[in-house]
């Protein structure tokens, strides 16, 4: 089997694991009731307020900011650059005549994405150093916590090498990626850096639904953040809790 086929199959498998795994988790979170009102107070008293609260958590990492400026700056830098890098990568999977192309191809997006790599490296390195140096963080870290940082560092580093040191055949790569989308396997450039980069990405996709990376969907479901403070005016009752009330009516 050629490298192209191996990578194509690996990509399919990893995508399936990622999508099925995360969807299963989201379904589990969505289906599990939150029987009691437990927003961390003070909390918004309207649904609109909750949207604002969630937005400030997800976009600005508000609670983390209150908590620890170092973790915040490194963590936020890393996640923001990840987002920028993600946009930059869209050009490899979006066909040239897609309506999205003009946006993704926009020079700003590409330039930001390119240099975001540095911010990502700094953010990740900062997090890694803290994990090693701060005794409290070291205490709560297991090998997988370090490896996950190293994995993403590896992805960032190989990606940047391709941008700044040894360029790969982007046109060929894009054909491979676009081919994947229509189940038509095209040859993949065989530069070692690229293969390492892609392998690490595949590993990341596979571990996503079975690791702490689940914080990404999890944050949306956290009852301490997404509940409205209105327990006195609106009765909140989980289905299983409602069943307990069968004994009540008779007593009154």
């Amino acid at each position: 089997m050629s490298a192209s086929v191996v990578y194509a199959l690996a990509f399919y498998a990893a995508t399936a694991i990622l999508v099925i795994g995360v969807v299963r988790k989201i379904v589990q979170y969505a289906k599990t009731p939150a029987p009691l009102k437990i927003p961390t107070m003070p909390a918004p008293v309207t649904q609109g307020g909750v949207v604002m609260r969630m937005a400030s958590e997800i976009v600005l990492f508000n609670s983390l900011f209150k908590s620890n400026k170092w973790i915040w700056i490194f963590g936020w830098m890393f996640h923001l650059s990840l987002l920028l890098a993600f946009f930059r990568h869209m050009r490899y999977v979006i066909s040239p005549d897609s309506f999205l192309m003009p946006i993704i191809g926009f020079e700003m997006v590409q330039a930001f994405g390119k240099y975001a790599g540095f911010a990502m490296l700094i953010g990740l390195a900062g997090l890694l150093v803290r994990r090693i140096v701060v005794d409290r963080v070291r205490y709560i870290s297991s090998p997988s916590d370090y490896l996950m940082l190293l994995l993403i560092l590896g992805i960032a580093a190989t990606g940047m090498m391709m941008s700044f040191v040894s360029h790969v055949d982007i046109v060929m790569l894009k054909e491979f990626m676009l081919g994947l989308l229509v189940f038509n396997i095209q040859p993949l450039p065989t530069d070692t850096v690229l293969l390492v980069h892609l392998s690490l990405v595949i590993v990341l996709m596979v571990i996503f639904p079975i690791s702490k990376l689940l914080h990404a969907p999890g944050v949306f479901f956290s009852p301490t953040r997404n509940q409205v403070d209105n327990s006195r005016t609106k009765r909140h009752l989980a289905p299983w809790a409602a069943e307990l009330e069968a004994d009540r009516k008779a007593g009154e």
Partner: peptide, 24 residues
């Protein structure tokens, strides 16, 4: 409990061991 309390399930899965709470 995991099947009855969403918070419990989400909290078990979501911690990234960032350490922000360690001194709180």
């Amino acid at each position: 409990l995991r099947s009855r309390y969403r918070g419990f399930q989400v909290f078990l899965d979501s911690c990234v061991k960032c350490g922000a709470c360690t001194d709180k």
